[in-house]
């Protein structure tokens, strides 16, 4: 009896292989077709002067050389750096501080506020752009109304390069604030209260508690937030494309994603060239993310 049961189980296990493959098959096929095939193709085609419906010639690293020398591509990298500097630290600090505010709220009020600040997170970049184009509008924008009330002249927020960048940064921060605040709040809530109580007994000042308890305990939260923010900001497309039709005043809102898309649409460069520029950005993103990991240092590994 016991023997047949064991045999039954092991035959079940053998059958498990087939079942398991059947279960992972749809996702594997989809990832294979829509992620890995394009990736391999990108690696291969970046070394050619390939165009759709045309033959290709292997040209080695020529594309990469041209991309790196292209002034528009460099401009897009510079804009990207500006957006990262404008958005990431601000969003990080705001959400960290606001998480403390959320922690200090009464339960009911806290729940209401969490819901309210999260709503913009589910709004699309296109809709957010429409709203903020309206808010920054020269004639009918609410900001210019405010300036008029203060006796100031109207400002063309969307026409001046640095203000155009700022408009995008504000919109982006508005969209991401709820998500990041709640993640920060979760990280904060996860720190055992006993740490603070012990510190209090030892007479540690709030500042010391922040430095020695809060910050080290939230390492993983910080990594998650920074990587999300950087990856998102580096690939920003909807906002600049929607608010400024892409490049914006003096190319000030030309992000790498817009650069890649514009080249894809126009026939000025080969697809090989466009792909090469996208690959270079993957290297930038990867490098920045590993920088985050090394600087902050994770306690847990990603897998298991």
């Amino acid at each position: 009896m016991a023997k047949s049961r064991a045999a039954g189980l092991s035959s079940l296990r053998r059958k498990d292989h087939a079942t398991a493959y059947l279960m992972i098959l749809p996702s594997l096929v989809a990832l294979g077709i829509f992620v890995f095939t394009p990736l391999v193709m990108a690696l291969e085609k970046s070394l050619t002067d390939w165009q759709l419906y045309q033959g290709t010639t292997f040209i080695g690293l020529e594309n990469f050389r041209i991309v790196l020398g292209n002034s528009l591509f460099r401009k897009s990298l510079e804009n990207m750096a500006r957006f990262v500097l404008m958005i990431v630290p601000a969003q990080f600090v705001f959400s960290f501080l606001f998480a403390h505010v959320l922690r200090g709220m009464h339960q009911r009020a806290g729940a209401l506020i969490k819901t309210a600040i999260y709503v913009p997170t589910v709004i699309s970049g296109v809709v957010a752009s429409v709203i903020f184009l309206f808010i920054f509008h020269y004639q009918g924008g609410i900001l210019n109304w405010l300036l008029r009330q203060l006796g100031q002249k109207r400002i063309a927020f969307l026409a001046e390069p640095s203000l155009a960048q700022m408009s995008i940064a504000v919109t982006s921060i508005w969209m991401g604030f709820g998500y990041n605040s709640l993640i920060m709040y979760a990280g904060l809530q996860n720190i055992p209260q006993s740490y603070y109580e012990a510190a209090e007994v030892d007479g540690a000042t709030p500042f010391k508690q922040l430095i020695y308890i809060t910050l080290p305990s939230m390492k993983n939260t910080f990594i998650l937030i920074l990587i999300n923010l950087m990856t998102g900001t580096l690939q920003m497309f909807d906002l600049p494309y929607m608010m400024f039709g892409g490049a914006g005043p003096v190319n000030s809102t030309l992000t790498p994603m817009v650069y890649v898309y514009n080249n894809f649409k126009s026939a000025e460069y080969s697809l090989g060239y466009t792909i090469a520029s996208a690959l270079l950005l993957m290297i930038v993103i990867g490098a920045l993310n590993s920088l985050v990991f090394t600087v902050i240092g994770s306690q847990k590994s990603q897998d298991e």
Binding site: S27, L28, L31, I33, F34, V35, F36, T37, P38, L39, M41, A42, K45, L52, T231, L234, Q235, P256, M257, V260, Y261, F264, L271, T274, I275, A278, L279, L281, M282, I285, G286, Q302, D303
Partner: peptide, 22 residues
């Protein structure tokens, strides 16, 4: 599993053009 997790680290931007080709 590793392959699946790896796909998380490929930015959409990188495969945008070739996804269109596919």
């Amino acid at each position: 599993w590793r392959l699946t997790v790896l796909s998380m680290y490929i930015p959409g931007l990188t495969i945008l053009v070739t996804s269109f080709v596919v």
